[in-house]
């Protein structure tokens, strides 16, 4: 299809071209427009659970990571109302877990923290839940700190579809939902997980981390210290598209 016949939709008043089958999210990112997101990693199937990427399509809210782009539709994303909701959602993720940024090895590389910065989350809205969750440090190379888990499901999806190991699953429900590890003891050390697994490399927060790598880059010089997640995500998305297109 030649570029001039490309279909487009409106995003915050801007014309966004898209390919057939592309989601609103992908089309926006390809056009250089950042939509805040946490559970979605464009390398993997979308999950639409964090709800940060909610946009208003022709007056109705949808998660942009799973919403197909349609020619001519009117999409709103960068509005004060939606950004306020995104701040509240981010704050919800922060209070339901135990996120000690000052003591977290992931600080500066953490997408939750970086997204909160991007949204300008300066105030605290909600009471802290202070849940008691288990840390699994049994494995020689990998640590699972459930305190920091935001239940994005990326490790489940990647371990199943890429690593073909299905090391992770979720149990419980509602606010008691938690990650379980597939091993007789329920511990990582007894599981099939290994340091080569993709699943342990894409945790957006510090829930799944490699041991021994945490402070290779000093705080203050880390990924989102250097470049805000809004720019970083778009850049990464473009690099991926280029790699795909050869």
């Amino acid at each position: 299809m030649s570029p001039d016949t490309k279909k487009t939709f409106q995003l915050d008043g801007k014309e966004i071209p898209f390919r057939e089958g592309q989601t609103v999210f992908d089309a926006a990112m390809a056009a250089g427009v950042y939509i805040p997101h946490l559970c979605h990693n464009p390398d993997f199937e979308p999950h639409s659970s964090c709800r940060l990427c909610t946009v208003i399509v022709n007056g109705r809210p949808f998660a942009s990571c799973t919403q197909p782009a349609v020619a001519g539709q009117d999409v709103r994303s960068d509005t004060p109302e939606l950004n306020e909701m995104r701040r509240a959602l981010t704050d919800m993720l922060l209070v339901e877990g135990n996120h000690y940024c000052p003591a977290c090895e992931k600080s500066g590389n953490c997408r939750l923290q970086a997204t909160a910065y991007a949204l300008g989350l300066q105030d605290s809205h909600f009471p802290q839940f202070f849940p008691r969750r288990d840390v699994d440090a049994s494995h020689p190379d990998i640590i699972l700190d459930r305190d920091r888990c935001i239940l994005c499901g990326l490790c489940l999806r990647i371990s199943r579809s890429v690593d073909k190991k299905s090391v992770f699953a979720m149990t419980g429900r509602g606010i008691t939902t938690t990650i379980v590890v597939d091993s007789p003891s329920g511990l990582l050390a007894d599981s099939k997980v290994s340091r080569e697994d993709e699943a342990v490399r894409h945790c957006p927060v510090g829930a799944l981390m490699m041991k021994g790598e945490a402070y290779m880059v000093p705080i203050g010089q880390r990924r989102y210290d250097v470049s805000p997640i809004s720019e970083d995500s778009v850049r990464e998305f473009h690099a991926r598209e280029e790699a795909h297109n050869g």
């Binding site: 659970s49 964090c50 959602l89 919800m92 339901e96 009471p127 239940l151 429900r173 509602g174």
Partner: peptide, 15 residues
Amino acid sequence: ECCGLCTPCRVGTSL
């Protein structure tokens, strides 16, 4: 009864 999948319902119903 919340399934726990999405943030607003999981945390919102508790709050």
